[in-house]
Amino acid sequence: MSYDYIEFGETEKEFTSKIEEISGQNIFSCYQCGKCSAGCAFSNLMEKTINHTIQLVQLGKKEKVLQSNTHWVCASCLTCTVRCPREIDVAAVMEAIREYTLRYEPETIERLDLPEELLKKIPNIALVGSFRKKSEL
């Protein structure tokens, strides 16, 4: 849908400030240069660009942010963070969106059913990492 009603009501303000609080970042510092999206190795798999997501957080658009897969595709490589001209820890914002979902809307997350064979093969570090990023563990 390419329409939106902009409103800065309690829901919107709360979402924005929650993301700011969890990430410790000032979302409004973003001036939409797009360098985060430009350098992201995974943007081809993202439904929304990173800067688009950040803009939506500025506007308090919780549903649109959470519906997108952007923050789940993010692999926390932090290229965006080290290159952001406005010193925003962009990866931390992605983390905050994941955390927000895990904390407040865990029911929206699909449970993984991993075959035992895979569990044996995959390095522990990946399993631990994956569970910590994508589940309530």
Binding site: F42, L45, L114, L127, S130
Partner: peptide
């Protein structure tokens, strides 16, 4: 370039 890291668990496509 990031190798895809922990996505190997459930998103080996990435």
């Amino acid at each position: 370039q990031c190798c895809g890291s922990y996505h190997i668990v459930d998103r080996d496509d990435i």
